[in-house]
């Protein structure tokens, strides 16, 4: 069985992004953010779990995952910011919006929100330079309208 912390981050993200949720499950989202912040490997594991959910073809599941990501970016600390600011994670977001990868099938609202969030991070987190690099590349490819 997965080690305890792995199980609880996995179970929390499953609950927070469950497509059957009638509305946003803020308790699970808060629990996920707190949990990832309090573990040595938390940010790395959390970004892997989030990337998988964001790439879901189910729009409501993916949108809830983006809400979890947005909440954690506001409430979690530097370690999470620097994990999100790595190409290892940014590449997973790029796959969602790029027609070369999942972009042709990904739901429009999900792609729109990914681009909006990436842009907001280039403004709020200027020292996470890889985010700006990734966003610039999306502009060059015309995925972001000038």
């Amino acid at each position: 069985a997965a080690p305890p912390d792995e199980a609880s981050l996995q179970s929390r993200i499953n609950k927070a992004t469950n497509p059957l949720n009638k509305e946003t499950d803020w308790d699970s989202i808060k629990g996920f953010c707190d949990q990832l912040d309090n573990e040595p490997e938390g940010p790395q594991l959390a970004t892997r779990l989030l990337a998988h959910k964001i790439q879901s073809p189910q729009e409501w599941e993916a949108m809830q995952a983006l809400t979890v990501l947005e909440t954690c970016m506001k409430n979690c600390g530097k370690r999470f910011h620097s994990e999100v600011g790595k190409f290892r994670f940014l590449n997973e977001l790029i796959k969602v919006v790029s027609p070369k990868y999942l972009g042709a099938r990904a739901p429009e609202p999900v792609k729109k929100k990914v681009l909006e969030m990436m842009y907001s991070w280039t403004v709020r987190l200027p020292n996470e330079t890889k985010i700006a690099d990734a966003y610039q590349m999306l502009k060059k490819q015309g995925i972001v309208k000038q």
């Binding site: 040595p40 790395q44 370690r79 290892r88 940014l90 590449n91 990868y101």
Partner: peptide, 15 residues
């Protein structure tokens, strides 16, 4: 104190 594992390894930007 808590063991702070900091890993700076990363991938290249997906083109």
């Amino acid at each position: 104190g808590k063991i702070e594992f900091h890993d700076d390894s990363d991938e290249d930007l997906l083109e």
